[in-house]
Design a protein around this nucleic acid. Sequence first.
DNA 1: GGACAGGTGCGGT
DNA 2: ACCGCACCTGTC
Length: 273
Amino acid sequence: MKEITIYDTQNFDVCDTLECGQIFRYNKLDDNRYEVFSQDKYAVLTTSPDAVTVASDDCDYFCNFLDLQTDYSAKVNRIKTYGKVMEACAEKAKGIRILNQNLFEMVICFIISANNNIKRIQLIVDRLCTAIGSKTPYGYAFPTAEQMAEKDESFYASIGAGYRAKYLAETSRRLVGYDFENLLSMSTADARKELLTFLGIGPKVADCILLFGMHRGDVFPVDTWLKKVYHAYFEQGHKDAEISSFFCNLFGEDAGLCQQYLFYCQRKYGQIG
DNA sequence: GGACAGGTGCGGT
DNA sequence: ACCGCACCTGTC
């Protein structure tokens, strides 16, 4: 394994980045180390007092994966001007980076995430990789669309997916040979419409795929946590279905990152301030 | 043992 | 278009 060390950790915290809910395939090894899986690749991230070290056979891949080429300082400073609430949670969550994750992997993982809890999502994803993913030196790869399409609904039920089994079987079949490049070339609004045509993808899951799999910052996934945040800190009388567009209008291009800050603070600390 | 999970699809207005 | 509701299952 090779290593790369990052010394500018002002806006890069491994714990914040991995535990803010954008990724399910990681494990905490000890106080300072996390292992991360993406597609068929693997890395160990070690935090020391003055740096973070990435150890992997695919260091370049993980530098992009961790969005290390992007300067977050301007974004964070701008978000801190979005009122008291954002100022407080940006200070706590400023180490979060929006990962560049694989699009197919995001589609499948976030279909599994619907009306589910993180522990069980990780359990199901782990069973999925172990059962049909290709073996790698460090574990099992995330399955390809072809590998998933070979399995039927009963298989996905057997790994604990519940009523999402049908969604996984049907959507993975539809994604064999799918033109992802075309999807990536679309505007955020058009890509969102296209994603909503897949079984198992509703508004919230579509926004997660756009944000985590396509790096579109101008979306705001609304789940139960963000509904709580809205009602506690932003109440302006919107119906649930309008909360996402309310935040998109409020935060513009920074909406996605703001959502991660708010989600993380609410979940980790039980409050924003 | 019940409520809750990073909601969605479906049928009824 | 807009509700209201059922829904797998692991965890707290």
